[in-house]
Nucleic acid binder design. Structure first.
Lengths: 269, 269
DNA sequence: TACGATTTGTCCGTATGTATA
DNA sequence: ATATACATACGGACAAATCGT
């Protein structure tokens, strides 16, 4: 038969809806906290069945864009940007053997190095206050609190770089690495704690880029070699526990919001 | 009131099914290429309605675990996990974070530097062949093809680092940057093309880490300063067009598969 | 405390589209 | 070309959760 018409393979309905809503979230039509229209509203707007709408919403939920609550005054609510999806996907990759702990720590080392350098270069007095606030004075702390302190410090340090891309990337790695540490629960000090962190803070405060970089490299190398010990024998059997662990990074993000400067408020390159 | 009982919030049915299938995929019960039971089979196995099963499968598809084909002998097939979804998610996050061009190029510069260093250190002869294959000899090319060549080169270079996390991060940055370039459509040469790339390739081939780093820094600085010109006046109004642009990165990823060595097959730190 | 209203969660039945043997 | 097996889509119904009164 002669070809008179070109193929018009329709993308699936749910996919069109998924993309449309996703893009409007990214563009800011719906902001975090906003409620999406109810299922029945979307049904009338898109002129499809409820089933299709539900598949689209479910996909948006899986992709980490919305949260869905049942009941009156419930519905789909747009979420804050969260790294949990990324760190979750990374942990899946880890469990699947697609990435290794060495690779994780390697990337973290290079990111932290650059972050430390930029922090020393750009940290404002306000940044320094926030950073010093993460250094708790009390000497005795339980394991979970120490993890939380560590996560907080490195998160806030990344904020001092004044580049949100570093923060997003760092948070994903940070969350996963600290979940691993919780699983490993090393007897020895894998968390150098406030001593090293305080030294890094001081270097940042003095705007001593070289010293900050030097310190963070040592810090990262130590953590990496500690974790490496456990790589083979212990962790693989406990990978399935990864999902259950919590680092408290979420709560930290809520207190230290992503309050980045306006886009062009600082010098680059 | 005293807390006598712990919360017994029932997970939704679709979620239980999602997790159960996901876990069995990760644990290897279903391997890449395997077909999952059909919808109706799953309905009888899980004793739930068809709709619930569909939502679970849709979520698994969104999360990148399976591919669903229509028709006889169709159904849900387990995918080989790759990093496309992860870099796509990162790309979305970055767009949500309202980042600037300067911030993009800044992070890219530091990542590319590390990538180039590692590539020079670790590239195998097979890597080198693939890398040289990206350097097209023909002198005349249209704009889109030049973009494509550039993206391909940097993507394959990141593969040479033998650390997929770098590739994930690089891909998401490359995606955004090249979308910007397409919007900007600079008259002047923003893409240095094969001259610079060939020099970098040579440095990698000679395992000259220092030279490779030196070259890539210059390369990045040049690209960054070219792009920066457009930051103020042009791009802001066109940022919303980002999602419409296509870099062809997807097709490139398909041809240059993520064939990383087994996880512990290389030296680190 | 109890009840009603709203919204999502689940189920059933049916019909249509699509790809393969 | 047809039959088969599967996903896609629709409509209606009721259950469950969660709010405000």
């Amino acid at each position: 038969m002669e070809k008179k018409f070109s193929s018009i393979k329709q993308p699936k309905s749910y996919e069109l809806i998924f993309n449309q809503i996703k893009e409007s979230i990214i563009k800011g039509v719906f902001k975090p906290g906003d409620k999406l229209p109810s299922e029945s509203d979307l049904v009338t707007q898109f002129q499809v069945s409820r089933h299709v709408v539900r598949e689209a919403l479910r996909s948006l939920q899986t992709a980490g864009f919305i949260e869905i609550k049942q009941g009156a005054y419930g519905g789909a609510v747009v979420l804050e940007m969260n790294f949990e999806l990324l760190s979750g996907a990374l942990s899946d990759m880890l469990r699947l053997g697609k990435i290794s702990i060495s690779q994780l720590t390697e990337v973290r080392k290079s990111l932290e190095t650059e972050v430390a350098r930029l922090a020393a270069k750009r940290a404002t007095t306000d940044d320094l206050n926030k950073l010093s606030a993460t250094l708790i004075e009390e000497p005795i702390m339980n394991f979970k609190d120490r993890i939380k302190e560590s996560v907080t410090f490195h998160h806030v340090l990344s904020l001092c770089s004044h580049n949100p891309i570093y923060t997003i990337m760092m948070d994903s790695l940070l969350d996963l690495i600290h979940k691993l540490i919780i699983i490993v629960k090393p007897e020895k000090e894998i968390l150098p704690g406030k001593v090293t962190h305080k030294m890094i803070y001081e270097a940042v405060r003095m705007k001593d880029e070289k010293k900050a970089v030097e310190l963070i490299i040592e810090h990262m190398s130590k953590t990496a070699s500690e974790l490496k010990k456990y790589e083979e024998k212990y962790i693989k059997e406990n990978f399935n526990k990864l999902d259950e662990q919590k680092t408290g990074l979420n709560e930290i993000l809520k207190s230290f919001r992503y309050n980045f400067d306006h886009v062009n408020n600082y010098k680059t390159i």
